[in-house]
Write a protein that binds this DNA or RNA. Structure first.
Length: 269
DNA sequence: AGCATTGTTTCACA
DNA sequence: TTGTGAAACAATGC
């Protein structure tokens, strides 16, 4: 669920509904999600303050708070979402019991006005931290420059899909968005990154930008046109050719090997 | 029952 | 030392 578009949705909910509200209680007792801090450390750091800014870089959220003290990091992992006063930020698809009292609620901030901000995550791979370190992340997928994108992507001979998934190169692209972008740009995920031409790279970046913006607008990466066809018996929604499947960059990858779609270029040597 | 999973970190290895 | 890929992580869905 959470790739950049879902995290941006979560950021929006926080920015719209959670700013300026005094925090008077925090439940940080989940020892797996709230790490590596001792129970109560995050609570102690947040009590009495209020969120002033909700920032995002790639899939990482960083919340700034009033007064002295650390920032708060939220990463939604594989299946997390943020809920503010019952409003869901992240993948909007209903998956049941996103309530404050659900056993799948892993972290909660209570505001003095009676409202709350919660992190809900069935699979429990979300992370809540203090002073999240963003230094290992590359430029955000929405703001990376053409020059940064072309140079960094092409600086390795790994498959292009693996480069897109590398958060140090460009932050925010997840498995589904990577498949969507490569399909839209008609580039095989197996293509060695350093063999792409400057023009191909520039087009790929433009496609990444448009696909990401569209996914944000449509309410999540699961709305992307290729996603329903990433399955056995799936066919390319553009040319009807059966989709191909392989593990690329360590992740399940689907693409259309049809002529004029994402067919790999013939290598003559 | 067994396998897959929208993410990240760790570890083994070349 | 650096880059790469597999495994681990937790829990659920099919």
């Amino acid at each position: 669920m959470p790739e950049l578009p879902e995290v941006e949705s979560a950021r929006g909910v926080i920015a719209r509904s959670a700013l300026g509200r005094r925090i008077n209680q925090v439940d940080d007792t989940d020892r797996y999600v709230c790490r590596p801090h001792a129970s109560g450390e995050i609570a102690h750091s947040l009590n009495g303050r209020s969120i002033t800014h909700a920032l995002r870089r790639g899939k990482q959220l960083k919340l700034c708070l009033s007064g002295p003290g650390p920032t708060l990091g939220i990463h939604l992992g594989m299946s997390g979402r943020v809920i503010v006063d019952g409003e869901v930020g992240g993948d909007p698809r209903f998956d049941g019991m996103g309530d404050l009292d659900s056993s799948w609620t892993r972290f909660r901030i209570f505001f003095a006005d009676g409202g709350y901000l919660a992190v809900f995550d069935k699979r429990r791979l979300a992370r809540v931290t203090l002073n999240p370190n963003l230094d290992l992340l590359g430029p955000d997928a929405l703001t990376i420059t053409r020059r940064q994108f072309c140079e960094q992507i092409a600086s390795s001979n790994r498959p292009i899909k693996a480069r897109l998934l590398d958060q140090r190169v460009v932050a925010g692209v997840g498995n589904l968005l990577a498949d969507q972008v490569l399909w839209a740009a008609r580039i095989s995920p197996l293509t060695p990154a350093s063999t792409l031409t400057r023009a191909e790279l520039a087009h790929l970046q433009q496609t990444l930008l448009s696909c990401t913006l569209e996914a944000i607008q449509q309410g999540g990466v699961h709305t992307a046109s290729l996603v329903p066809h990433r399955k056995p018996e799936g066919r390319c929604p553009r040319c009807g050719h059966p989709m191909q499947h392989a593990i690329v960059g360590g992740r399940a990858t689907w693409w259309c090997p049809g002529v004029g779609c994402q067919q790999e270029e013939y290598q003559d040597d």
